[in-house]
Structures are given as structure tokens and as C-alpha cells.
Design a protein around this nucleic acid. Structure first.
Length: 569
RNA sequence: CGGGGCGUAGCGCAGUCCGGUAGCGCACCGGUUUUGGGAACCGGGGGUCGGCGGUUCAAGUCCGCCCGCCCCGACCA
């Protein structure tokens, strides 16, 4: 392609509302333009990168034995009612009635559709296992789209669904996908972490892994051990606080007035103490309607999934003001463990043996100071209830953990029989008995992965595309225009490379060298072929690696082979 | 959904407080020179100032309603 004929509208400045690096660079590089909040148009250069990404994913899915489908984005609402997921997705689903008044939706995902097909057309154990996938547009009316292409309302996702006859088969399918994902992320050159997770959100199921790409603009928090390499999602980390002596000072329990102080910082400031000397008492409503209290140090955050796990109740939610009053006799913001009766009280491990703590007094505008855990109240049990914080220790090797942020680019789940049961996807086993098919689902965000690559692979001049995603392997930059020896040489290199089957961009524009360099750097073509007077005089042409800026030289009488090899580098 | 901010040329912004001929930089078009890091000079085009309504002799500017976009939070892949 000739730059003069291509449509790569580069920008010197990024739109002011772009915040993440990938957003700024993708707009500046002429890859994307925004059409609405969380809705982007892909320009040819950007779309080409997306297509490369899809091709890699497709290859790896096929290698693992996947078969590709095309499924409708437009789906009838009733199959969603059968699985009960309309509730779970709630406001995130784009819904409307068609002209006949039938309720339709734009699919946020495709489990229902694919499982319906399997339900009607897979009948025997001999039909299993199967790996079915599709790479398609999904729609989710996100509460808050952000970070450019990282979180959008319309996006391309690869989803593969596995169908197995037994658990062992599911394990095998899961393992195949796990390996395929590793290959994919390696091929696009990102540093990633597969992290185990217990949370399965709206999809529901047992085991799962999130594939996270480390990046500052990520929305996922994780911890990483600089020593042994341990890493885990923040919410999944077993918390190990550094071994400090608890405060054993003698203290006297006293009630003090704290007018209007409901927030930890307010109370701490008012009483001239530190948040970690406070105990937060959170009242929760159980799935069966009962109440429960969870105690957390003031500077910590409650980890809902740990708490849910501790009490084996996945229907827990924060209690309403009315229920709090019912449990404690006081208003929201002044709850405390002292005198609480009739409900289970769980305390985080860090509170064990602490003295001189501040707790709510279960009445308006009052707190206790000088509270000693075990003397003034005794929780029913101590367990790990909090989210990890900077400074916590690695549960494997006790090194101090680092907090990092990352982008979730893939998520794989063992689903079990949840959907197959509801949608009647069963098969006859060898003994003739009907069993629900055992499922797994494996998602991967296409645009998000591309954005994540850019988040990781850029410099102050622009994007650095890996060869695997680059629409053009090389860009030829004749330092002269519109005519002359260098232009002739550029044409020659261009034709030779095309002959050699290399995707190449020739910057034939009549612009200043600085513009050519700047655009070449910005759009991230992996190899630059610089044709200048200097080189011409010395009888050589210059090959520059976009990433390393390293220069190599070729004799000026290039051939298709020598050029191709230099570009393949 | 709560809190905050913004909307003026393709992009980045000034002008709004205090009403009086709509500006700047980059980009764009024509010309001259020029080609190893976003060039210089000359000439030029481009705006329902987000929309609707109101106040006024006069509204980008004041008032009201609406729309859009961004940020923080809640929520979520």
C-alpha cells in the first residue's frame, strides 16, 4: 500500500477526553474514531490489526479442535428467560420489541443460543466431546464505558463452548483452552498472568481463570510477589498481614460523643487517632433473610466473596438501614460489636487480641473507645475477611507483595450443567441413561486484547506493534519527494518486497522527513526502511527496528530475498 | 444511578464572569522555496458557538428546559 492512497488519518494531538494510552494512541494512529459513548468505528488500519488478532485466535481455536459457528446477535428474549439470566444481566442488555411485538435483545453473549442448538442436535455420548466457537459482536449496555476500546458497549468477543460427557472430559477441554490462551497471548507478545478465581459472576459455574495483562489502566487489581512470582487477584488472595505486635496497652472502655461521624476517616480524625485503630462493623443480610455482622479494621476493605465463602452463603448482601437498626438498635454508621446479640459475628484475623480500638456504640452519634477484642466482646470466629493491601505478605514465600493493575483479556469457566439442564441439552450415555451435557465457556475480548497489547507495547513516539498484529511488516521512508533517486529506490524496494510476499507500506507522500518518521513511529510498523542521501552516498540502505531503534544496513543493490530477510529480522 | 466537569472550524483551545462585527495554534486548499525528525514565506477556504425556547435594540456570553460527551463513584467481562 502507498501511504498517499491509504486512509490512515494520523493526529498530532489526542482528543482531550482520551485518558488511557491505548485510547490516545489508537485515535492518533488513525485506527479508531468514536461514534457514541462506548461505541467505536474501526478505520482500515485499526480494522486490519483487529483482523490479525481474530486470525490468531481462530488458528488457535482450530488447533485445539474448535469448530467455528456464526450465531445471531439478534436473539429472542425467551431463551434468556429459560436460563434466568435476564435478571443477572439486568440493565446491561439492550432490549426492544420487534414490529410484531416480540421481545428481542442484542446478545451480550451466546451460551443460550449455542446450548439450544446442542439441545436439539446432540443426542448421544458418541457425539461428544465438542468444542464450538464463534468470534462475533456482543452488546452490553455498560453502566460506564471507558478507556477507549477497553470497555465498550459493542465489542468483538471470541467465545468457545465445550460440551463433554463427564467431568474428566471437561477437565481435558478446559486444559486445552488454557493452553490455547497461553499460545495466543504469547503470539501477540504480551506479558500476562492466568489467575484462578472463584467468582463466576453472572455466568455461574465452578473453576475459572482470568487471563490478565498487566497495565496501569487496568480495572482489575491483583497482587504479585516480586520474589517467588506468586500472583493472584486481589479478591482471591489469602491475606497475610506483616507480623506486627498487636497493641496490648491497657485500656478502659469509654463511650464518647461523635456527632455526625459515620465515616472511618471522620471518626479517626475527630478522635485524633488512625483508621487502623477503628473497627468497622458491617451488617449483612443472608440469603435466608437472617442477619450477620462482619468486623474489619478501619483501614481494610471487606472482601465479600471471602465472607460468602466463610459462611457458605452466596446470597449475602449489605443490609438496609431498617435491618441494621433491627440488629443493632442504632442507625447506620454507628454499628459496633459490643452488646450485639442474636446474630453471628465474624471478625477479620487482624483484629485478634487488639486493644484500644474504637467501635460504634449502636446508638446515634456515639462510639466506644478503649475497646479490647476478647474482653469487651468475643466474635463467634476469626477468619480472613478482607482484601489484601500493599504491604501484605506473600502467602507462599512471605515476601512483601506488590499491588498491580491489569486488564482482563480472557476468562475461562467450567460451567457444569447449569445451562444444559435449563435448556434440556442432554445425551444418552452408554447405558442409555439421559444426562445433561457438561459445559465450559471460554471468552476472549478481541479489541480489548489489542488495546492491552498497545498499553504494554508503546513508547513516547507511539505504538510498537508486534509483527503478528502489524498490518504492514515494513514501511519504506524515502527522505525525498516527489521525485529523485531516493524515490526511485523506494519504488524498487516496494516492488521487491511485494514480490517477496511481504506486506509493506511505501511513504510516497510529498511531506517532510520528520512527518514520515513521526507517522511511521506513531502507527507502529515493526520495521522502517530508511532511504536517505547519506546512505545513498555510502551505497547502503538503513533498516531500523521500531522497538529497539537498532539500525542495520543492506547494500544498495538489494534483492527481494535480502530485503525480505532484513524485514523478517 | 449519585457526584463533578465539558460542549465554540477536522484536532487542541481562548472568548462566557462584565451582552455590542467569532478568534488563536495545528490540520486543510493554491503558490514559491525546501527534504534525515511534525519546515518557511505569500495567499485562501471552512462555524446553524450542542439543540429548543425565553430576556434584550442586540445573545457564544444572561435565564429555563433538553441532548451529548468525559471524569470520580456504584456496578460489571
Amino acid at each position: 500500500m502507498r501511504f498517499s492512497e491509504a486512509f490512515i488519518p494520523t493526529l498530532k494531538e489526542a482528543p482531550s477526553d482520551a485518558t488511557s494510552i491505548s485510547h490516545k494512541l489508537m485515535v492518533r494512529a488513525g485506527m479508531i474514531r468514536q461514534t457514541a459513548a462506548g461505541v467505536y468505528s474501526y478505520l482500515p488500519y485499526g480494522y486490519n490489526v483487529i483482523q490479525k488478532m481474530k486470525a490468531i485466535v481462530r488458528e488457535e481455536m482450530n488447533r485445539a479442535g474448535g469448530q467455528e459457528f456464526l450465531l445471531p446477535a439478534l436473539q429472542p428474549t425467551d431463551i434468556w428467560e429459560r436460563t434466568g439470566r435476564l435478571e443477572a444481566y439486568g440493565q446491561d442488555v439492550f432490549r426492544f420489541d420487534d414490529r410484531h411485538g416480540h421481545e428481542m435483545l442484542l446478545g451480550p453473549t451466546h451460551e443460550e443460543v449455542i446450548t439450544s442448538i446442542v439441545a436439539s442436535d446432540i443426542r448421544s455420548w458418541a457425539d461428544l466431546p465438542k468444542l464450538f466457537y464463534q468470534i462475533q459482536t456482543k452488546f452490553r449496555d455498560e453502566a460506564r464505558p471507558r478507556f477507549g476500546v477497553l470497555r465498550t458497549r459493542e465489542f468483538t468477543m471470541k467465545d468457545l463452548y465445550s460440551f463433554d460427557a463427564d467431568e474428566a472430559g471437561l477437565d481435558k477441554s478446559y486444559q486445552k483452552m488454557f493452553e490455547a490462551y497461553c499460545r495466543i497471548f504469547e503470539r501477540v507478545g504480551v506479558a500476562y498472568e492466568p489467575l484462578a478465581t472463584a467468582e463466576t459472576g453472572a455466568i455461574g459455574g465452578s473453576a475459572s481463570h482470568e487471563f490478565i495483562v498487566l497495565a496501569d489502566s487496568g480495572e482489575d487489581h491483583l497482587v504479585k510477589c516480586p520474589k517467588c512470582g506468586f500472583s493472584a487477584l486481589l479478591g482471591e488472595t489469602v491475606c497475610v498481614a506483616p507480623a506486627t505486635e498487636p497493641n496490648r496497652a491497657e485500656c478502659e472502655l469509654k463511650i464518647v460523643s461523635t456527632p455526625g461521624m459515620t465515616r472511618v476517616e471522620q471518626v479517626a480524625g475527630f478522635l485524633k487517632t488512625k483508621p487502623h485503630r477503628l473497627i468497622k462493623t458491617m451488617i449483612l443480610e443472608k440469603g435466608d433473610g437472617g442477619l450477620l455482622a462482619a468486623l474489619i479494621r478501619g483501614d481494610h476493605e471487606l472482601n465479600m466473596s471471602k465472607l460468602m465463602g466463610s459462611v457458605d452463603d452466596w446470597g449475602l448482601k449489605l443490609a438496609s438501614a431498617e435491618r441494621i437498626a433491627e440488629a443493632t438498635g442504632g442507625p447506620v454508621g454507628f454499628s459496633g460489636p459490643i452488646g450485639l446479640s442474636g446474630i453471628t459475628v465474624l471478625a477479620d484475623l487482624t483484629l485478634k487480641g487488639e486493644t484500644s480500638m474504637v467501635v460504634g456504640a449502636n446508638k446515634e452519634d456515639a462510639h466506644y473507645v478503649g475497646c479490647e477484642v476478647g474482653r469487651d466482646f468475643t466474635p463467634d470466629s476469626f477468619c480472613d475477611l478482607r482484601k489484601a493491601v500493599e504491604g501484605d505478605l506473600c502467602p507462599k514465600c512471605s515476601e512483601t507483595l506488590k499491588l498491580e493493575m491489569g486488564i482482563e483479556v480472557g476468562h475461562i469457566f467450567k460451567l457444569g450443567t447449569r445451562y444444559s439442564e435449563k435448556l434440556g441439552a442432554t445425551f444418552s450415555d452408554a447405558s442409555g441413561k439421559e444426562n445433561p451435557v457438561i459445559m465450559g465457556c471460554y471468552g476472549l475480548g478481541i479489541e480489548r486484547t489489542v488495546a492491552a497489547v498497545i498499553e504494554q507495547s508503546h513508547d513516547e513516539r507511539g505504538i510498537i506493534l508486534p509483527k503478528s498484529l502489524a498490518p504492514y511488516q515494513a514501511i519504506i521512508l524515502p527522505m525525498q519527494a516527489p521525485e529523485g533517486e531516493l524515490v526511485q529506490l523506494g519504488e524498487k524496494c516496494y516492488n521487491l518486497l511485494k514480490q517477496a510476499g511481504v506486506d509493506v507500506l511505501l511513504d510516497d507522500r510529498n511531506v517532510w522527513p520528520g512527518v514520515k518518521f513521526a507517522d511511521a513511529d506513531l502507527i507502529g510498523v515493526p520495521t522502517q526502511i530508511v532511504l536517505g542521501k547519506r546512505g545513498l552516498k555510502e551505497g547502503r540502505i538503513e533498516i531500523v527496528d521500531r522497538r529497539t531503534k537498532e539500525k542495520t544496513f543492506l547494500p544498495i543493490d538489494v534483492t527481494a530475498d535480502s530485503l525480505r530477510d532484513a524485514v523478517a529480522g
